[in-house]
Simulated assay, not measured.
Amino acid sequence: MNVKIAQVAKQLPKYSCTTEEILPLLNVWLEGQEPRFVKKITKLFEGAAVNKRYSIMNPLEVFKATSFEEKNNIYCREVILLGEQVLSKALAKANWSPHSLDYIITVSCTGVMIPSLDAYLINKMNLRQDIVRLPVTEMGCVAGISGLIYAKNFLEANPGKRAALITVEAPTATFQLDDFSMANMVSAAIFGDGAACCLLSSH
């Protein structure tokens, strides 16, 4: 069975910040750390080759000491919005109706949602109640590829079907102000928030 990608779309959050705008916030955050360490992290951000970072919250909020619960609440609210926007955009580009989807895969590892994102999208976008659901979490950077493999396997086994893979990540929601490890620094320097959707078909 031949499985094809029918359409792709992306959706960026409303907030963005250039590296030049982030550096003053970085200096405030790292105040009290050793000067050599501050200089090292500044060079890390400057050399990351990321000119603009998008986020689900105002950059000032990212550097505030909000609790996990507060940031996760923002995550839940914003990923539903991004997921709906990116799926709607992809469906419009493919000229598919929401009701024509047979399989929905949602991917995210930067927040906690119960029920998962797919359940919200089913209700908000009037998807079929018998649509096959698969939430993919805690898989990190390989999750999107894993989602494509799951969709491909489903479609190969089911001719004439359609699948939507929606990935939404918001690492600003998991940014830890009290973590000065290099892993947290590199993550903050290179990752941004956003969503993508891939529509696949075995028609």
Rank of each mutant, 00 (worst) to 15 (best):
K4A: 12
I5V: 15
A6R: 14
V8T: 15
K10A: 09
K10E: 11
Q11W: 07
L12T: 03
Y15P: 01
S16D: 12
T18Q: 10
T18M: 08
T19D: 00
T19F: 04
L23T: 08
L26K: 06
L26D: 07
N27Y: 04
V28C: 02
V38K: 14
I41S: 04
T42K: 11
K43A: 15
K52H: 12
R53M: 04
I56A: 01
P59K: 10
L60K: 12
F63Y: 14
A65H: 11
A65Y: 02
S67Y: 05
E69P: 00
N72E: 09
C76V: 15
E78K: 15
L81A: 13
E84D: 10
L87P: 04
L91V: 08
L91P: 04
A92H: 08
A92D: 10
A94D: 09
P98E: 12
S100N: 08
L101W: 08
L101V: 09
I104Q: 00
C109E: 05
T110K: 10
V112R: 12
V112T: 11
M113L: 12
M113N: 05
L117F: 05
L117C: 06
L117P: 03
Y120P: 00
N123E: 14
N123Q: 14
N123S: 14
M125S: 09
L127H: 05
R128Q: 12
R128V: 00
Q129P: 00
D130G: 01
D130M: 03
D130S: 15
P135I: 04
P135N: 10
V136Q: 01
V136E: 03
C141V: 07
G147N: 07
I149C: 06
A151Y: 05
N153L: 10
N153D: 15
P159Y: 07
K161Y: 04
V168I: 13
E169P: 01
A170P: 00
A170E: 01
P171K: 01
T174Y: 03
F175E: 02
Q176V: 09
D178Q: 13
D179F: 10
A183T: 15
A183L: 11
M185I: 02
S187A: 13
A188C: 10
A189M: 03
F191A: 01
L200C: 14
S201F: 08
